[in-house]
Computed example of a mutant assay.
Amino acid sequence: MYLLSTVVASLAVFFFLKWMKKRRYCTDVKRLDGKTVLITGASSGVGKETAVALAARGARVVVACRDAGKAEKAVREIKLRSRSLAVVGMELDLASLRSVRRFCENFLRREERLDVLINNAAMPGVLDWTEDGFSMCLGVNHLGHFLLTNLLLGRLKECAPSRVVTLTCSSYKYQKLDLHDLNYNLLPFFTYCRSKLANVYFSHELGRLARGKGVTSFAVHPGLVRSEWTRHYSLLFRAAMRVLAWMLSASCEAGAQTVVYCAVSDEAARLGGGYFVDCRPATLRPFARDAGVAKKLWEASERLVQPP
């Protein structure tokens, strides 16, 4: 009896973990020949898998990374796996507004098109500061992408219909924004949650402002995936997270599917953007759908990224 109970319990755990890691795959076969896609943080994880998938569909893919060495290595791998030579790397440090401005100047000078912008790069909950004095999560996850998108918005409109896909996380639901303390930097996990909520508001307000101008905005939660975010933490923490990741998370390739879906799918475009999980629209918590907060965050972000 004990043996039977153990076997049943083990099978239950096995199928539960398998269900947890299950993901839908993007089945849309649309090509992107002649299109240009810019992906931030594409040297690893979901960003790199997205780059492989879109390059394989014929897109010219620009890989924007902080580390030039990692970017060069990623470009070689993406070219090999996608069987495409139309992959280039550019240096971009989202923790520096100066770097973002320099990157945009170079990009607009070098690239004639921008059809899809994928705001993928993210910093986990770490108590650190950017060179501009913002908390690292706010600066990289929100303000860096906010400035990047606004500086490239003109090119996106010129190439309409175009898309902006911003990666967020379901952890947005565990915090609310304090518009009087956007630079909150006390508890790492809460700092991260607030930045992911900012991504949701940003995507919502961008969609509202760009409505009728040919630019569709998507917020995407890729799910729990085995990425390299733990590299910012101790060896013991990384080991523990590796075990949990093996048990509960999906591959980065699976995590990239919703990003790819929002980047290529005509069905997703007809839905007019929104929040997507597992290759389908999902419902946000009521406070995350507050258009008034989204507008106020946008205005506050404009003031924060203005050069002194």
Rank of each mutant, 00 (worst) to 15 (best):
L3S: 11
L3V: 13
L4W: 10
S5K: 13
T6V: 15
T6F: 14
V8D: 04
L11G: 03
A12L: 10
F16S: 02
L17F: 10
L17V: 02
W19G: 04
K22Y: 11
T27Q: 12
G34W: 06
G34F: 07
G34K: 10
T36H: 03
I39S: 11
I39Y: 11
A42K: 05
S43T: 15
S43L: 06
T50L: 02
T50S: 09
A51P: 07
A55L: 15
A55Q: 14
A56R: 13
R57T: 09
R60I: 06
V62A: 05
C65M: 08
R66P: 00
R66F: 04
G69D: 15
K70E: 12
K70L: 14
K70H: 13
S82P: 04
S82Y: 03
L85G: 09
V88K: 10
G89L: 01
G89Q: 01
E91D: 09
R98K: 14
C104M: 01
E105M: 03
F107I: 02
R109W: 11
E111H: 08
E111N: 03
L114K: 04
V116A: 12
L117A: 13
L117S: 14
I118R: 01
I118L: 02
N119D: 14
N120F: 12
N120C: 13
A121S: 12
P124N: 10
V126C: 13
L127S: 07
D128C: 05
W129V: 14
E131D: 14
D132H: 12
G133Q: 08
S135G: 13
S135P: 04
L138H: 01
N141D: 09
N141G: 02
H142Y: 08
H145S: 06
H145E: 06
L148G: 09
T149N: 05
T149R: 03
L151H: 11
G154P: 01
R155T: 11
L156W: 06
K157G: 00
C159S: 04
S162N: 04
S162Y: 03
V164I: 14
S171D: 15
K176A: 02
L182P: 02
L182G: 06
L182Y: 10
N183M: 07
N183T: 10
N185W: 12
N185M: 08
L187N: 14
P188Q: 11
E205I: 08
L206M: 15
G207F: 07
L209E: 05
A210K: 00
A210D: 00
A210H: 00
K213Q: 15
G214E: 09
G214S: 09
V215R: 04
S227I: 04
S234C: 08
L235E: 12
L236R: 14
R238S: 06
R242P: 00
R242G: 15
A245L: 12
A250L: 13
S251R: 07
S251E: 10
A254S: 15
T258K: 01
V259T: 07
Y261A: 03
V264L: 12
V264D: 05
R270W: 02
R270V: 03
L271M: 12
G273P: 10
G273A: 13
G274K: 10
Y275Q: 10
F276D: 01
V277R: 15
A282S: 13
A288N: 00
D290V: 04
A291E: 03
G292Y: 08
A294H: 08
K295E: 15
K295D: 07
K295V: 09
W298S: 11
L304A: 03
Q306M: 09
P308S: 05
